[in-house]
Design a protein around this nucleic acid. Structure first.
Length: 422
RNA sequence: GUGGCCGUAGCUCAGUCGGUAGAGCAUCGGAUUGUGGCUCCGAAGGUCGCGGGUUCGAGUCCCGUCGGUCACCCCA
């Protein structure tokens, strides 16, 4: 065995078995997403797959697991520390600030798609290089945008056939809310410190909110009696959250409030959400996101709000209902004498110029083999060029579904053939 | 980073008590001197992950190692 792909990666190729290995499914999801972004009036943004390490440390958060143990960090030849992006938002916000995009008409509605990198142990639906399709709406804190973004995520997933999905939402409140809630939560957890798991004890110091999403049974038991953020919401945070819920109801986006959602990225504020599918394994989050009203300022921009989601394409594919690959080709040229091969290629090219898809045999197959190949390629027509045809200046046009055949003159060029096909 | 399970043909797998490698699918050819899907026949395809050990003999037993996978942690 020669070289193998790096751990946690996969290839996409004709014949790939897993849904995330099939090019036809990738193209289908990408086209579906593009169609949604066009209809919701989002414009594309492309940013580098690596950035200064510090951008992610500041943006995603020093205390987050992603920064602490999951980044691919390397030094360039000038000794600068760079990191492969572990998520999409930080880079997009950096570009927004760097180019002064907040001076354009706001909000700016952006979408992106591309690979993200996290140094994790592989399991079902989790890769070291995975692909996210995401959006960011920058320059406003209007809760109606939260509604649009969540609706977009939900309908995109529906369109690609994600099964058994539920959208969970929560609010982390604004700054005032957290100033009141976090000390309460912390005080409560401190009292029950001995019943918490070690990870949660550590988070008590670094980021107490994160304790809320612990799966440890002992910690969960403590949390059952913990103060809930819902009771601490400021008037503004409460009315924003109500507006989001009302909006989702109006747009008929089914959702459930889950107060345990706090997200592992530190920049989130206010609305957070996560779409989970029962069709996945333990990694059941298909797409998620939230509002980040401090991030733009933290990265050196003005005090403006933003919200976005990232959706994992591999997980969308894994959670989607099975789909057969549909192959199609307009014409397959069957050549039965060597002299006919170049004329066939010439004719094929003439048809290609007109927008028809064409192919021919390059493997030296038997006649039977070539028809089989035409069938497999999903060809609508076969154009047979054998000894008789070659000498007579015509070809035989075979309709692959009916089996009907007719002579078509080609000595004067592709005109007659085109007339039959277009 | 930790743990469970698994590595045999391109893919999915069988391989009994340790006796020198099998099937299905896929590929190519033939049955049909130039005609696909269905059927039948045939061919090609293997470092049994790798290294070591035990044995007359190892795909099979033992040790190590690498890889995969699922789960934990966390996330898309």
């Amino acid at each position: 065995m020669g070289y193998r792909r790096p751990r946690g990666t996969y290839d996409v190729y004709p014949g790939g078995r897993e849904p995330n290995e099939r090019p036809d499914l990738w193209q289908w999801v990408e086209e579906t997403a593009r169609s949604f972004f066009r209809r919701y009036n989002y414009r594309e943004v492309r940013v580098p797959v690596f950035e200064e390490t510090q951008l992610f440390v500041r943006g995603v958060g020093e205390a987050s697991d992603i920064v602490r143990k999951e980044m691919f960090v390397f030094e360039d030849q000038g000794g600068r520390s760079l990191a492969l992006r572990p998520e999409g938002t930080a880079g997009v916000v950096r570009a927004y600030v760097e180019h002064g995009l907040y001076k354009q008409a706001q909000p700016l509605k952006l979408w992106y798609a591309g690979p993200m990198f996290r140094h994790e142990r592989q399991q079902k639906g989790r890769y070291r290089q995975h692909t996210q399709i995401g959006v960011e709406v920058l320059g406003t804190s209007d809760p109606l945008v939260d509604v649009e973004v969540i609706d977009l995520l939900y309908r995109l997933h529906k369109a690609v056939g994600v099964r058994d999905e539920v959208v969970y939402i929560n609010t982390l409140g604004d700054f005032a809310t957290r100033e009141r809630y976090v000390p309460e939560l912390k005080a409560y957890l401190e009292k029950h410190r001995t019943d918490l798991d070690p990870d949660s004890v550590a988070r008590l110091a670094s980021n107490p909110l994160r304790v809320l999403d612990s799966k440890d049974p002992g910690t969960r038991a403590v949390l059952a009696e913990a103060p809930a953020i819902g009771e601490f919401l400021s008037d503004e945070a409460r009315s924003d959250f109500e507006a989001v819920k009302e909006g989702l109801e109006t747009l008929r986006v089914p959702y459930e409030v889950d107060e345990r959602i706090v997200r592992g990225l530190d920049y989130y504020t206010s609305t957070v959400f996560e779409a989970r599918s029962g069709a996945l394994g333990a990694q059941d989050s298909v797409g998620s996101g939230g509002r980040y009203n401090r991030l733009i300022e933290d990265l050196g921009g003005p005090d403006l709000g933003g919200i976005g989601f990232g959706s994992g394409v591999e997980r969308m594919l894994l959670a989607a209902a099975a789909r057969e690959e549909e192959r199609s080709l307009d014409v397959f040229f069957v050549t039965l004498v060597p002299e006919a091969r170049l004329p066939a290629l010439e004719l094929a090219n003439a048809l290609r110029e007109e927008g028809l898809s064409c192919d021919l045999d390059y493997a030296g197959r038997s006649a039977k083999g070539q028809f089989k190949q035409a069938d497999r390629a999903g060809a609508s027509y076969a154009v047979v060029m054998g000894e008789e045809e070659y000498r007579g200046g015509y070809c035989t046009l075979r309709d692959m579904s009916s089996g009907e055949e007719r002579r078509v003159t080609v000595s004067a060029g592709p005109g007659e053939l085109l007339r039959r096909l277009l």
